[in-house]
């Protein structure tokens, strides 16, 4: 079995399994931890609070927007760019159709692909630099967090190096790094892609019930 075959075959299925089972397991464990009831008399509806928190936290808390401007810009550029790339880059759409048997949808044009990659890249670099250069974030970053940044960066870098779509080894490298990232995902802080909902809900519910504005 060649490296290409291994990456395209067994490793891909393994990564897919770890990715989905791992995420499910993590979520189940978190939910199974249960919800410690709040015995206080509700002042307002906890439900409204949780819905509000889910969305209000997309904007920075009033007053700190300017202070964390770079962090904020980097965050939005990176995440929006990443989703656009994941979902609408032509090679990805073709991949989903071919390997996951999803119906093919309209990919974005090449120029948009390139533009979005640029934005996502600059966003990721700003985030990463902020993480290592800001004394506060550096202090609270674990090895795992750095690993997440580095892996994500490598995945995006290899993807952009493979842009010519003419040399098989570059595609295989990109795919391999994606698989490593997928295997790493459920066990890392990258889980925030799912858990951010849970934490915002829990916080919003509590705050809402107690009448704290969210």
């Amino acid at each position: 079995m060649t490296v290409t075959e291994f990456v395209d075959g067994p490793l891909w299925y393994f990564a897919l399994a770890v990715f989905f089972l791992g995420i499910a397991w993590r979520l189940v464990v978190i939910l199974a931890n249960g919800w410690r009831g709040d015995l206080s008399r509700p002042r307002r509806s906890g439900l409204t609070g949780s819905v509000r928190a889910l969305f209000s936290r997309f904007a920075p808390a009033p007053g700190i927007g300017r202070r964390i401007g770079l962090h904020l810009t980097g965050g939005y550029l990176f995440h929006l760019g990443l989703f656009a790339l994941l979902l609408f880059a032509a090679p990805h759409v073709a991949f989903y159709a071919e390997r996951l048997s999803l119906p093919a949808w309209q990919p974005m044009p090449h120029w948009a692909f390139v533009l979005v990659s640029e934005l996502a890249f600059i966003g990721l670099m700003l985030l990463w630099l902020n993480r290592v250069l800001n004394p506060v974030t550096r202090l609270i970053s674990s090895t795992g967090d750095h690993l997440s940044s580095i892996l994500t960066f490598l995945v995006m870098l290899s993807g952009c190096l493979a842009l010519e779509q003419a040399h098989e080894p570059l595609r295989v490298l990109h795919f391999f790094l994606v698989e490593v990232l997928m295997i790493y995902f459920p066990f890392s802080s990258l889980m925030h892609a799912f858990t951010f909902v849970l934490s915002r809900e829990a916080l919003g519910y509590r705050y809402g019930r107690r009448g704290v504005p969210v």
Partner: peptide, 12 residues
């Protein structure tokens, strides 16, 4: 392979 990657990376 190296050169193709370099060209794409450089352009981007």
């Amino acid at each position: 392979v190296i050169a193709s990657a370099s060209k794409e990376g450089h352009n981007l």
